[in-house]
Design a protein around this nucleic acid. Structure first.
Lengths: 247, 247
DNA sequence: TTTTGCAAGGGTAAAATATACACTAATTTC
DNA sequence: GAAATTAGTGTATATTTTACCCTTGCAAAA
């Protein structure tokens, strides 16, 4: 037994706040606990991290076992380690959130998925453990990230209308946006591709469909979040500001 | 032995990136390792988390043992858990950064402090373990936070000049700022108190001294980052934007 | 076939903010 | 008192954000 081995060790887990967007609501996938502690309460999906697995790997595994989805957007948010957060012993948990296209979500083996259910974020009440606090941290992080990077697209199906996109942003930011300004802003970012198709089967004027252009986004990032220089007309954009508005 | 006890457990630690500002440079406090692994290499200060201690507590303890400082700004950044990040076994570490007023830093018991040294961030090379990666994450986080909240003041002595403050922002953001625009912006935020004193003993026109007004900042936050409504003239400020510039 | 309901789609003017830019003022030192 | 050095300041322009409503296209109902 070396000195190293003598240090206190703890169980550690990941918890994954899985966000989806459906029916105009931001939703989160919760699991009803079938065992103590907190039996019968809703909880975030999570599990122990295996010895041969890194943290992102564990979070991805949790996600995949539950939803069958791989390669979705995943972001580490914060680690929770209050001494008494788990009644059975010391457990440190690393909180992640993921963004999934809710239509891609297929119920996995009934045994697992039976107890899983999407909940509108605005209607989630108390959760098991400190999961409510974890959810709140992830929501806050999502809110701030969505203003910095075009994450919204991760939550929408491959084809969507501008109104869909606006509703998504409104749901995440918990605010109302002006339709004309929203469209102007989004289209000016030149991240959308007009699919030259329209909605079908709606009882009103059908909307145009767009898709997100991931390649353009990559360029967008590489240029330090500047707009592209189009036709040499637009000068360097304010995106690279001397000082950000809030300093 | 319960099922709970049978799960894999790991050692876990905190590492603390302690930032200071001195001589126009952003600095970080590093420790020269006196033991294997990575003996003789520079490393971030860190230690195991005790069983009765939460994560913030551990980070604060590490900071206090090294610098004697309490109640400094501390922010959890990210958790690192690559399977092989520690050659002796599985160790998960939670990375924090702290902002200290470098003049307050007093060498603690020589036994500890002997090996500690401030390094300009721009001159830090390879570090032990994955500490270089941790440092980079913390730097990046600091850069983005400093644009959202007035953190800079945590790094300056209680009284400072506008030029000091500008140099600090330039060091953190790794950019040059326009003097007039910087002053306009900072003063318009109404977070500084003019101390009606000037520098002494400088071989040029002495600068006015200011201090940060923490109370005003609290109000500033509470109002959702709006400017105060002064004399009813200024309307709601753009700080609450419909959509942030980068979306 | 006409009417009605409904969401889509689009532009402009005003306000706020950010940027670029250069000289005078105050102090110490020589 | 001249030189050196940093502090301190204002304005004009460019860009961005905001507020604000009517016409269009489709389907369903009349």
């Amino acid at each position: 037994m070396t000195e190293f081995d003598s240090f206190f060790k703890s169980a550690f887990t990941v918890d994954n706040v899985i966000f989806g967007f459906d029916e105009g609501d931001l939703k989160v996938l919760l699991i009803k606990r079938g065992e103590a502690p907190y039996m019968g309460k809703w909880a975030l999906p999570g599990y122990f991290v295996y010895p041969n697995e890194d943290l992102d790997g564990a979070a991805n595994r949790v996600l995949e076992e539950l939803t069958g989805l791989r390669k979705v957007y995943l972001e580490q948010v914060k680690t929770f380690g209050a001494v008494d957060r788990h009644p059975f012993g010391r457990v440190i948990t690393v909180a992640y959130f993921s963004l999934v296209k809710i239509n891609d979500y297929k119920l996995q083996p009934a045994s697992i998925a039976q107890k899983a259910q999407w909940h509108p974020v605005s209607k989630v009440g108390e959760l098991a453990f400190d999961h409510r606090e974890i959810l709140d941290s992830c929501l806050e992080r999502l809110k701030s990230l969505v203003r910095l990077r075009p994450l919204g697209f991760e939550l929408l199906p491959p084809h969507f209308t501008l109104t869909d996109l606006q509703h998504l942003y409104e749901a995440i930011l918990e605010t109302e946006l002006d339709k004309r300004n929203f469209r102007k802003k989004i289209l000016s970012m030149d991240l959308l591709v007009d699919l030259r198709q329209t909605q079908e089967g709606v009882a009103h004027r059908p909307a145009k469909l767009y898709r997100f252009d991931r390649d353009k986004y990559v360029r967008f990032q590489a240029e330090g979040f500047n707009f592209e220089l189009k036709e040499g007309k637009r000068k360097e954009s304010r995106r690279n500001r001397e000082l950000a508005p809030a300093l």
